[in-house]
Amino acid sequence: MLRYTLKRALSLLVSLLVASLVIFFVVEVAPGDPAAYMLGVNAQEDTLAALRAELGLDQPKLVRYAAWVTGMLQGDFGTSYTYRTPVAQMVADRLWVSLPLAAYALALSTLIAFPAGIYAASRRGRAGDMAVMGATQLGVAVPNFWFAMMLVVIFAINLRWFSAGGFPGWEGGVLPALKALTLPAIALALPQAAILARVMRSALLDTLGEDFIRTARAKGLSPGQALRAHALRNALIPVLTILGLQFSFLLAGAIIIEQVFFLPGLGRLVFQAISARDLIVVESVVMLLVFAVIVVNFLVDLAYAAVDPRLRART
């Protein structure tokens, strides 16, 4: 287990290094001069040069890469070209919205998907299975912003249980903040839950066809006991894979939902930074997301090994 963990950790570091290189140089070759963008089309050549020097844009690429990476390691992500504020502070503010939102949505999605998938698998081919499959088909097909709008119409406009958007911040207490995130989290969770429930169901059905389920039944376990005691853990590997992918997606992919609910999240920050050629913000946010994806994958790898002893033995 230790060797497995060390190996995964090593691969995590290499992935981060490669990702940082790719992100830096891809963003560098993107067209558009941030200095020109900031000063407008009529700017003088010497003013531009002065600004470039101030931003460090006149340095060689490798030096700037090294400065960027060492800065990040110390928590210094540079200064935004457009807002002239530390990127770290901007990202942190947004992360306090996006991270809880993603976690909230993922928790909801898991809470919906696991029981639904298990129920459908245990009633294979019967009415309950058909109902769950029909509902998940709908969940996969309908875009999340439509769910978002319906939730706003029903719960904010008609019932007035929630506000239609905005985020009060965490200073005013945890409950109001969570309440503001509830509708967006549901809108994000529904399509994810539909996918996850289908994966859960098919993984369970595969496992239920295995010989060891028959062995368990021969020992005297009921179908339900065999499912819980033997099928569930074996079916978790594909489910964990999808969960890992979904978390990464939810972190930055919530841009439309953030737009619908006026949430100051990471998705909106990236969108604004790209429009404004704020390269340093784009780089930092993308790097942060890549970091999140790689770390989540690392955790998923560890979860695999926790679930399946054969992975611990093979290195």
Partner: peptide, 26 residues
Amino acid sequence: RKLCGLRGREVGMVFQEPMTALNPVQ
């Protein structure tokens, strides 16, 4: 229900394929 109480207690069964008859994660 009664059959579940009987299987394993009164009647045991051994299968053909030992490689897959056991749960790999237990």
